[in-house]
Write a protein that binds this DNA or RNA. Sequence first.
DNA 1: CTTGTTCACTGAACAGTGTTCATGCTAGAA
DNA 2: TTCTAGCATGAACACTGTTCAGTGAACAAG
Lengths: 243, 243
Amino acid sequence: MSETDLPAAPWDRRRRRPAPAKVPLTRERIVEAAFTVLDREGYDRLSMRQVALELGVAVSALYVHVANKDELFELMYLRLFEGRELPDPDPERWQEQLKEFARDGRAALLRHRDMARISMGQLPFTPTLLPHVERLMAIIRASGMPDRVAAMAGDLLSTYIEGFTLEEGMWLERYKDMDPSTWEVKRQEITDYFATLPPDRFPNMVAMAGLMVDESNDYRFELGLDILVRGLASYVEKTPEES
Amino acid sequence: MSETDLPAAPWDRRRRRPAPAKVPLTRERIVEAAFTVLDREGYDRLSMRQVALELGVAVSALYVHVANKDELFELMYLRLFEGRELPDPDPERWQEQLKEFARDGRAALLRHRDMARISMGQLPFTPTLLPHVERLMAIIRASGMPDRVAAMAGDLLSTYIEGFTLEEGMWLERYKDMDPSTWEVKRQEITDYFATLPPDRFPNMVAMAGLMVDESNDYRFELGLDILVRGLASYVEKTPEES
DNA sequence: CTTGTTCACTGAACAGTGTTCATGCTAGAA
DNA sequence: TTCTAGCATGAACACTGTTCAGTGAACAAG
């Protein structure tokens, strides 16, 4: 409805240049650019200058929209939860629901390079995340475990997801420069290293040489998840009528 | 026995100043200084320059003994395990032994400010730690759990210890500037915040308002540990003869 | 058409960072 | 005394996060 909808009148000299069609800088665009830089350059090279350069803008312009590099990290962290919905609690399926939540979390972290490093060092107690935490708690409490355990369960799960993915990402970073054909060779080298340790001093290492390296990350994540959920389940008081 | 034991002869012009009694720079002294700086300044202000300043030495001198800031971090990380002995495995007490290991780990991390942040981002697969890992594995395998689970158990435990202590440390850092008298007030504020949320939208948050904040870190750590160990125990195949 | 104000953005600067390298000093060997 | 080896130095490079006085365009009022 404003006059900007109308074509510019040729006699109107106010705008000789077509008003450089500036896409205004917003928090969203900054976060977007930050992710682009993160994926291309990695955590260590993610700097305010690189983000500004990505947007074709002076560094100081960023600070109008974002207080800090820390605040930028926080915004990136919040992205992890956007569009991730938790189901209504189903007391029969709380274990599977928690596992699904964890798988989602890992997937979200793996979506961007080094994302786990940003996620670590963030406390998930921002009001924005309250609805999310509330729904997670609903699922946990529906299991029937004591509230003391339920309060711990959320943290425990988050710590596992982030910790596991962090370690996973560090291995990925370490071997990303090698071409995949040598991957298998390298892995065999490591397995061999463990296998050829003096068996009298390192009997357990030698015995588990294969297992420590061979298993896929997916399998290992799933196994850790199962250990955790079993531990939680052991706190659920089974009422006599359901069994 | 060298001539430096003798008092300087007044006519000897070679050393007007008493040969500044140089303690030679070593990796050990550098690591020591790094810990001093870490405890005083925190992770974010721990820089090579500060370490050099602490030692009264030029920055570049550090690089003779230490390749990198990363290598310095690695050396600091290795300190965590020095003088920490694991007991011989006792199949009857594996659960308590693992818990003791975890408590030790947390204590070691808490011994230095922000130590968990250094510890995270370190892969514990350096040859120096092999004996340590071996002994941990001995305890885990003595429990009788399948090797696949045992291989995961170590990682899971380490992730928990580091993750928990990292979060713990972040809260400590956040509130360290306040004087302890206002601590209690602040905690009540947070509890109240949760308690006064709209109960129709956040029934679970409101219900657990007290539990989420009140419990001590010691208790929470112990609880998480128990959940984990119970999960592991659920994988131990109980042979018929022992029960 | 002229003013004034607002707003987003710029460029330069400050105080720091990790890391390198030619230079110098010092202690011991010949 | 001279030579040599090794260590430590200071200056430099290429960065970092953050601040702040100033610029220019857009719009509203007089």
